[in-house]
Amino acid sequence: MAGAVGVAGVRAVARIGARPDGRGGTALPTLESQGPLAVRRTRASGSEAKVMLVGAMSGPLGGDHFTVTADVADGASLHVGSAAATIALPGQAKGEARYDVRLSVGEDGELRWLPEQLISANGSELYLTTRVALAPGARLTLREEQVLGRANEEPGRLTSRLTVLLDGRPLLDQELSSGPGAPGGWDGPAVLAGHRALGQLLVVRPEFARQPVEPRLLGPYAALTPLAGPGALVTALAPDALHLRRTLDEALRSLG
């Protein structure tokens, strides 16, 4: 199935739906790929179904609009990874590219959303939005990593907004703009100060409501903080993707 191609760029939607299979595992009744966006089932482990996003690395190009949705029903457990980093590249079509991620997790469901990095290549322009709707009792582990520019190049323009609702109320809402044309001061001492890799790791667990994580620094450019709700967030800056991943992995291990 090909995505719609036009002067405005490629539109493609991929959908993942997960629900309990009735035997202690998770079934994937919905697994739809389109155009450059493909979703593949990989080997499950325990109660968790596993899906890989593949092929998205060739884009998005300017003018493209990609959407990925994942719906985890009550009691289901889903892990989504990606085969490779996603690279935002300049395209022939005018205007920015859009990448929208829409996730929902039902009661006692669990989603681990752990894609590879997003790389903002020189000359690209991407607006990425990630919206997550969590039911009470839902569990989430979500990693978002951005690398501003490939090796030794200036970054493209990237705006990324992450909005998480728990039971309809905002738990986390963060937007970061970087690259040429971004609002002033983005690379200055209050925001990124020259760092070219940045990431967030969000962990939502019902038990954090009773026992929030203790805030703690993870080096000079990263912190683990309890949110005003049952969530813990790691905010990290690093010189490159490798150091960033190390910090986020260590933080995730420390949360058990």
């Binding site: 970061l176 209050a190 100060a193 940045l198 450019y221 903080t225 905010t235």
Partner: peptide, 8 residues
């Protein structure tokens, strides 16, 4: 709009 270094 967020500023990671202000938070950290």
């Amino acid at each position: 709009a967020s500023a990671p270094l202000l938070e950290i």
